Computed example of a mutant assay.
Amino acid sequence: MQSRGSIAAASTKAPADRVSSIGYQNRRHGWRCVVPLLTMTISLLSPIAPAHAEATCEPDVQNAVEEPGRIETNSNRDEGRRPCEVLSFFGVEPGAVHLELLAAQGYYTEILSVLVGREGRVYHHNNALVLQLTPPDQLVPIRNRIESGELSNAEWIEGELEALPFANGSVDSISAILSLHDYYWMSRRPESSGFAELFRILRPGGRLLVVDHSAQPETTVSAAVDQNGIHRIDQRYLTERLLDVGFVFEAESDILRNPADDRSKPFFDRSMWRDRTDRFVMIFGKPGEQTSDED
């Protein structure tokens, strides 16, 4: 089920100059939600008029998922990752300039390339640590698809988390899939520099998709700071840190929730193989003008 305009147990103090509400419209699929934000005098972000709907899989996204050229080791993970439902929830726009953050083997890069179309652009990003730690044979297939021109609208880029190679406001959308928890062991300043850098490069009205392994409540970053730890992040804490750098919360979904996961084990534990972790899915926005088809 999906919830638009609510977030479980998130708490923050909003700056006085933050807009009082934000309207978000998915231009392809037509739905719209308005999420009231908090004033400076309110410290608790509680559920706001939640509207629930079953997870959906839009036909154009399904076509992208079923694209015959996808790397087999990527498509074999579709059952556990549910890319059609996740990207239908996010709503990638044709013609968008999209950054796939810490993309590694390019699971989402291939699908996003189809969705943004010929007029769009997908940047497949990795930093030095991902390139160093990922077995080279796992990177070759996606790099070959990009550099051969098979994914003609995709580009392989490298850059550190605190200095992404993009101009201010030059990206329409960003996906951070199972990656923001890694900031806490990869970066010396994960929030003030790393998250702020995502905000800097995103255009006003642009959106950030966050999917990550859920840690137990009130654990803040303790499950994320150790490279050899369990690689999870406290959803409430992460939400607060993204709000701190200027993002606004727009929506969340329980598409990838798994109540059977007690959130004590890393994703690479045998019991968690094949994408069995409990994962949260959220959309954040950058305040500013966002044009619609009606404009």
Rank of each mutant, 00 (worst) to 15 (best):
S152M: 09
N153W: 09
A154L: 05
A154C: 07
E155T: 14
E158T: 14
E158V: 15
G159E: 04
G159C: 13
L161H: 07
E162N: 12
A163I: 10
A163Y: 13
L164R: 08
L164I: 09
P165G: 14
P165M: 11
A167M: 11
N168P: 00
N168I: 05
S170H: 09
I174N: 06
A176E: 04
I177L: 11
I177E: 12
S179R: 05
L180I: 10
L180A: 07
L180E: 03
D182Q: 10
Y183I: 00
Y184N: 12
W185C: 06
M186P: 01
M186N: 11
M186W: 13
S187T: 14
R188L: 04
R188V: 00
G194D: 01
G194R: 04
G194Y: 06
A196S: 15
A196Q: 09
E197L: 01
I201C: 13
G205L: 05
G206W: 00
R207Y: 11
V211L: 02
V211H: 00
D212K: 01
S214Q: 11
S214T: 15
S214P: 01
A215I: 02
A215H: 05
Q216N: 14
Q216H: 08
E218L: 12
T220A: 11
T220Q: 08
V221D: 10
A224H: 00
V225T: 15
N228F: 11
I230K: 01
I230G: 03
I230N: 03
H231T: 06
I233R: 00
Q235Y: 02
Q235W: 01
R236S: 14
R236W: 00
Y237K: 02
L238K: 01
L238M: 13
T239M: 10
E240W: 03
L242C: 05
L242P: 03
L243E: 01
L243Q: 06
G246H: 03
F249V: 08
E250R: 11
E250N: 15
E250D: 11
A251I: 02
E252I: 04
S253H: 13
I255T: 12
L256E: 07
L256A: 06
P259C: 07
